[in-house]
C-alpha cells in the first residue's frame, strides 16, 4: 500500500533538460520510477535519454497518461510550472525548486483551491515509497521496505533519519519531504491524515522545525487519534527573528518556537525525540506498544 505514489505511478518531469532535472530524472529511473515524459517548452517531439519530450504538461498527460509531476524548474518560472500541472489535472505534483517568491506561492495556493491536485513542496526533496517509486532528489540507497512512514520539513534530516531507520532494520512505507517554505502544498497534518488511512504504516515519524504553527495543528489532529507517531523538532536554539536557512524556519515573536511545538506534541501524547539518535528507539517502542 503506502501513500500517494507506488509502482504504478507514471511521472513526468518538468525541466528535464536542465542540469538538476536531467540528473535526478536519471536517478529516479535508476530507482525504478516510471518516468514517462519530460516537459521543456520548445523541445517537444525530441527525447532525453529515451524519455519523450513534450512542449506542455497537458500534451504529456494526454499522450503518456502521466499522473504525477516532478518540478525542477528555476524559481522565477516554478510557480507557473506548478499551475500548468494543476490546470492539466495532474493529481500529484512535487515541486523541488527552492527560492520561489512567496507571493507566487500565495497565488498558487489561491489557484489550487478546489482543484484535484495535491502539491508537495516547494523547496522539498520530494516523495519516495520504498522499493516502488521515487519522485525528487532523495538519495536512492537509503531506503528499505517496511512499515514506518516519515514526514519532514527538512531534506537532510529526512536522509539522516531514513538512513538510521534502515540501519536499524526498520524499513519504510513512504517518506514525504514537505518542504521548508512558509507556504507549502502538503502540511504535516495532511500527510498524517494520509498515513492514518494506510494499513501498512504502523508508526509515523514526524520531523518538524521552528516557524509557523503546522506542528501545533498536527498535534491537535493527533490528540486522541490513536496514531502511533514519533516527533522531532529542530531549531531549539535558534534565536528569534533570524531565518535559519529555510524561508519558513524563523521564530517570530513568541510563536513558532521549538519549545511550543514540543509541548504541543507531548500534550497530544506524541513522544518527542531529544536528538536524532533517540528516534530509532522511540520508533521501536511505538511498534511494540
Amino acid at each position: 500500500m503506502a501513500i500517494l505514489v507506488d509502482s504504478g505511478t507514471k511521472v513526468l518531469v518538468q525541466g528535464i533538460t536542465g542540469r538538476e532535472g536531467a540528473f535526478h530524472a536519471g536517478q529516479m529511473r535508476a530507482y525504478g520510477t516510471k518516468v514517462v515524459a519530460g516537459v521543456t517548452p520548445g523541445k517537444g517531439g525530441g527525447e532525453h535519454d529515451g524519455v519523450p519530450l513534450f512542449d506542455s504538461v497537458a500534451e504529456a498527460v494526454a499522450r503518456t497518461g502521466a499522473n504525477a509531476s516532478a518540478i525542477f524548474v528555476p524559481p522565477p518560472f516554478a510557480a507557473d510550472a506548478i499551475l500548468e500541472s494543476v490546470a492539466a489535472g495532474v493529481p500529484l505534483v512535487a515541486c523541488i525548486t527552492e527560492g520561489i517568491p512567496i507571493l507566487d506561492m500565495v497565488r498558487v495556493a489561491r489557484y489550487m483551491k478546489g482543484s484535484g491536485t495535491r502539491l508537495i513542496g516547494p523547496n522539498c526533496p520530494g516523495i519516495t515509497t520504498a522499493g516502488q517509486c521515487k519522485i525528487g532528489i532523495m538519495p536512492n540507497m537509503l531506503f528499505s521496505t517496511g512499515n514506518v512512514g516519515l514526514i519532514s520539513r527538512s531534506g537532510t534530516l529526512t536522509y539522516e533519519v531514513v538512513d538510521a531507520l534502515t540501519r536499524a532494520g526498520l524499513g519504510q512505507t513512504t517518506c514525504i519531504g514537505i518542504g521548508g517554505d512558509p507556504i507549502i502544498g502538503t502540511k504535516h497534518i495532511d500527510a498524517l491524515q494520509l498515513f492514518a488511512k494506510d494499513p501498512d504504516t504502523k508508526v509515523t515519524v514526524m520531523i518538524g522545525e521552528i516557524g509557523g504553527s503546522d506542528e501545533e495543528a498536527a498535534a491537535e489532529f493527533l490528540q486522541g487519534s490513536g496514531m502511533k507517531v514519533v516527533g522531532f523538532i529542530s531549531g531549539r536554539n535558534a534565536p528569534p527573528g533570524k531565518r535559519m536557512g529555510h524561508a519558513g524556519a524563523i521564530i517570530s515573536g513568541s510563536s513558532g518556537t521549538a519549545a511550543g511545538k514540543i509541548a504541543a506534541l507531548e500534550k497530544a501524547g506524541v513522544p518527542v525525540a531529544g536528538t536524532l539518535e533517540d528516534i530509532v528507539p522511540l520508533v521501536r517502542r511505538q511498534l511494540a506498544s
Partner: peptide, 17 residues
Amino acid sequence: IGNGAGLVMNTLDIVNQ
C-alpha cells in the same frame, strides 16, 4: 558548518545540548 538547513539547525541544537 553542515549541509542542509535542517541538519545545520539540528547541529546547533546538539552543540547546545
